[in-house]
Design a protein around this nucleic acid. Structure first.
Lengths: 228, 228
DNA sequence: CGTACCTTTGATGTGAATCAAGAGTAGTGG
DNA sequence: CCACTACTCTTGATTCACATCAAAGGTACG
C-alpha cells in the first residue's frame, strides 16, 4: 500500500490541473506520465505532429512558435516551470499547429491523452480545470491579437514590460527578460533591430534603464501612462 | 408528460453542444434559456461586461470585435446561424474582452451559466463538447495570429477567399462575402482602401472576378498557388 | 581562445495606412 | 416615386512605421 513517493508523483501533484485530485487519481495519471529530459534547441514536437498527450515543464524554458515560409519563425509563447501546453490539440483531430522547442536544457512531464481522458470520465473537476485553463489561453491569444493589430511596436513593448513587472509594483520595478532579446522580439512580433531601437528610445526618454537583460523601471505609472 | 414542443426546444436541441443530450437535460437547459431578438447595430454585450451565459445565433449575423483607442474597431469574428460565442468567458473571473454587435436584424439564444454548469455536473459529455469547441476556437485564433504576423495583405485575402470557397471545390468557385467589405477588411486586419486595391489587383491578374459582394474564382488551384 | 550567436547602430526600402475626394448604392421620408 | 441623406466603395497622392540590408562590436560557451 505505502509505496515510496516518487519525484514524479510530487511533480504531478503540484500541477494546477491536478490540485484537489485524490491520491488514486494521481496514481492513475502517473501510469501514463513520462519524464522527458531535453537539451537546449531540442524539438519537443514539430508543427504537423499528431498529439499523444500534453506537456508540463518541470525545469527549463520552452518556446511555442510558428515556422515562417522564409525559414524564420514567430514565437507565440515563452514558457517556464509549472506551465503546461498541448492540452487543446488533444481534443481535436488535427495535428499540432505550432512547434515546441527548448530554449534551455531542462525536464518536462508528458501525460498521455488516454489516461487523462480516463481520469476525466471519473472526475468532472478535471474537465472543469481544463476548461478554465483553455479559457485563459484563449483570453491570452485575444490579447495578443489586440496587441498585434491595434498597438505600435513601442506600445507592445511597454505593455510587455509592465506585465512582466508583476502585480503589486508600487513605483519602481526591475524586470529581467526571460530569454534572449531575439526571442523576445519575435514574441512581440518585432525584428531584433526594432526591439533594440525601441528599448533605446525608451531609455533616452528616461522611462527605463537597460543593462543587458535587466531593465530598470524608475517610474512604473509614468511608463504605463505612455501607452494610453 | 407530453408537453408541446416549443421552437426554443427545437433550436436548443439542434445546437452542436446539445446533440446527444436526452430530453430531460434539454428541458433543464431550457429553463435557463431566453430568446433575444436583436436589431441591426444592437450591442449584445460590450467589452468589460460580466458574463451571465453564452449565446447561440438562430438567425442573422453578429460580429465580435475589439474597440480601438481611436474610436475604430478590429473585427475578430463574423458569425451566423448555428454558431455560438461567449463560452470561454464563463469559465474565468474576467469580463468580456471583446464586444458583440449585430450586423443584421435577427434572433439569438442566451443560455445561462448556472443551468449549463448544473448540466455539466450531470453529463460529462457536455464538458467534452465544450472542450472540443474551445479547442477549435483556440486553433482558429492561432491561425489568425499566423495570418496577421506572417502573411501579407494579399495572402490573407487569398486565404480567406479559399476558405470561404468551401471544402470540395473542383476548379471553379463562387464566393459571396457574408457582409460589407468594410467589415471584411477589418476582419482581415486591412483598411477598406487596401482591401479594394488588393481585390482589384487579383482581378487584374485574372485570378478572380468581382461583382459587388460576389466573387468568381475561375481557377481555384491557381489562386491557391498564389499563396505558397 | 576561437567560433558562433547576440546585440547595436546606420542607411535605405517598402507595404500598407492615411488623407482626400468622387462615384456608386441604399435606405428614409416627404 | 423621387429627392435626401448616409454609407460604402473606389481611386489617387502622400506618408510613415517598421523591415531589410549591412557591418561592426559584444558575449558566451565549447
Amino acid at each position: 500500500m505505502s509505496e515510496p513517493v516518487s519525484h514524479l508523483q510530487i511533480a504531478l501533484t503540484s500541477l494546477p490541473l491536478c490540485r484537489q485530485l485524490d491520491a488514486e487519481e494521481i496514481d492513475a495519471l502517473l501510469r501514463g506520465t513520462r519524464e522527458h529530459a531535453f537539451r537546449r534547441g531540442e524539438m519537443l514536437f514539430s508543427k504537423g505532429d499528431p498529439s499523444t498527450g500534453f506537456f508540463s515543464i518541470i525545469r527549463g524554458q520552452i518556446k511555442l512558435a510558428l515556422p515562417s515560409p522564409q525559414g524564420g519563425e514567430k514565437v507565440l509563447e515563452i514558457m517556464g516551470p509549472g506551465q503546461s501546453f498541448g492540452e487543446a490539440v488533444m481534443f481535436m483531430e488535427v495535428p499540432y499547429p505550432v512547434f515546441a522547442q527548448a530554449l534551455t536544457e531542462g525536464t518536462a512531464l508528458h501525460i498521455s491523452k488516454a489516461v487523462l481522458f480516463a481520469a476525466m470520465d471519473r472526475d468532472p473537476r478535471l474537465a472543469r480545470k481544463l476548461l478554465a485553463g483553455l479559457s485563459m489561453r484563449l483570453h491570452g491569444l485575444i490579447q495578443d491579437v489586440e496587441a498585434y493589430t491595434l498597438q505600435s511596436a513601442r506600445q507592445r513593448l511597454v505593455a510587455y514590460l509592465i506585465e512582466r513587472a508583476g502585480d503589486a509594483p508600487p513605483l519602481r520595478a526591475e524586470v529581467r527578460l526571460p530569454t534572449s532579446k531575439t526571442v523576445i522580439a519575435s514574441r512581440l512580433n518585432l525584428t531584433p533591430e526594432t526591439l533594440s531601437r525601441v528599448l533605446h528610445g525608451l531609455a533616452e526618454a528616461g522611462l527605463i534603464e537597460v543593462r543587458g537583460r535587466v531593465i530598470q523601471i524608475p517610474d512604473l505609472p509614468r511608463l504605463a501612462s505612455e501607452n494610453a
